[in-house]
Amino acid sequence: MIKKIMIILCFMPTFYVFALEPLAEDELQKVLGQGGVYLSGDITINENGGPLNDASDASTPAIWQANCSGASTNKRCGARIAVNAGDGANSGWLVLDNIRGRFSFEGMTLKTRTINDGFSGDGVLFDNDVLEIGLPNKVSYGDVSYTLANSSKARPTDVGFNQTDILNVKVDGDVTMRGNLLLFPTGTP
């Protein structure tokens, strides 16, 4: 179900997303309702390759078979997303390829709350519930990388597959993130 909610949240172009200054503690004390969930941890993508790299599986296509231990740079070891934004069979595919890396964070919060005060008086007028995503103070990136490419076919195994890499990205380091995202519906449902 969490996945469903996240899917909903990911595809809301008309959603109002506010990045706000941190509330003063006295304002926080006026927030009604209970709390939610405090999340910490890490997310790792294809640290040792993906399920299509399994050479011991006879059904794995040869083009995907690779040794994908942590130090491997084989470009088949990452995850791959191909999107056809053209007109279907006659157009090429925009590809994010060889997606790998680790994201770690401390203290992302997820909760619902009622805002009926604060925000320089706007809270009284708002007087509604929001889903608050409290951003973690620090997100660490470890060997996060991907390749942006154009491809003639969706899959490397498709007949006539031909891909042109445009650029490679690799990210290491920390990002400081403060504040909250407040999500709430608006407009005609």
């Binding site: 890490d42 640290e47 399920p51 995850a79 997303i81 007109d87």
Partner: peptide, 18 residues
């Protein structure tokens, strides 16, 4: 006209605290 996602292996270590 199509989205094809392949070969994902995503691992998480999360702690969720009320």
């Amino acid at each position: 006209y199509g989205v094809v996602m392949q070969n994902l292996n995503l691992t998480t270590n999360l702690t969720a605290t009320p």
